[in-house]
């Protein structure tokens, strides 16, 4: 009986679809997973490894844990279909080949993993090939503390700027450049009345400037415009 409703105790066979919309008896939506056999797979359980790594990561946001995280990332990537939430599968697929970004990859996933773990502990455990271990038991039964949530959210805030440009650290200083160029190109397409050739060099289409209803009040250094919208368009319109 791999699945057991935590409310009424009803059990379901492995792979049962009965419980997908809640326990038919009591309507409960929390189920306990009890693997049919205790024989382990060739790799540690995903839930276990993820929750343990999640516990570990907030404290180790630097290199020493990279090896472990690598393993975790590899695990994640190796079984994306069965273990990853659907939205993460493409991510994992695209990130895995990027060998240099493993550390930041693992770090940037931390909040995801924690959320995923929380989901696992709160909702059904329908994972196959999952083995019961201490970490999983802890993840399932323990309630995440507000501190952890706070820390996780701070990790997101502080990690993301650091990890995003991480893979191309050598070009970090000129990282914003392509963005500004892109922005400039984009604006040039939108506002062909003023073409920004390069910083300090402009080409103006006088007829367009004359024909436009909106009035370009100022040009920002990063290539953005401030325009005054005609009153008739209304302030509330975005």
């Amino acid at each position: 009986m791999p699945h057991q409703c935590t409310t009424c105790g009803r059990t379901f066979p492995d792979g049962s679809k009965e419980m997908l919309s809640g326990c038919p008896d009591c309507g409960g939506n929390k189920f306990q997973f009890k693997p049919a056999s205790e024989t382990t797979d060739e790799q540690p359980s995903p839930g276990g490894s993820q929750s343990s790594s999640a516990d570990r990561r907030p404290a180790t946001d630097s290199r020493p844990a990279a090896g472990d995280d690598d393993a975790t990332a590899a695990d994640d990537a190796s079984t994306p279909d069965s273990q990853q939430p659907e939205s993460r599968s493409p991510d994992a697929g695209s990130r895995t080949p990027d060998a240099e970004s493993r550390t930041s990859d693992a770090e940037s996933r931390t909040p995801d993993d924690q959320v995923a773990d929380a989901n696992r502990s709160d909702s059904e455990h329908v994972r196959e090939r999952t083995e019961e271990d201490v970490a999983q038991a802890s993840a399932r039964s323990d309630v995440v503390s507000p501190d952890e949530l706070d820390r996780a959210s701070r990790d997101v805030e502080t990690d993301s700027p650091a990890t995003e440009p991480g893979p191309d650290t050598p070009t970090d200083t000129e990282g914003p450049r392509p963005d500004i160029d892109d922005l400039r190109d984009e604006l040039n397409e939108q506002f062909e009345s003023i073409r920004i050739v390069s910083p300090g060099k402009y080409e103006l289409n006088l007829m367009e400037l004359y024909d436009r209803q909106e009035y370009i009040i100022s040009l920002q250094e990063d290539g953005r415009y401030v325009i005054e919208m005609p009153d008739a368009w209304g302030i509330s319109d975005e």
């Binding site: 003023i194 300090g200 402009y202 103006l204 006088l206 400037l209 009040i217 100022s218 040009l219």
Partner: peptide, 15 residues
């Protein structure tokens, strides 16, 4: 240069 460009836009707007 940037201010001059804004100025042209303003002049055309006034016109």
């Amino acid at each position: 240069s940037r201010e001059a460009t804004e100025g042209v836009a303003e002049a055309m707007h006034w016109l």
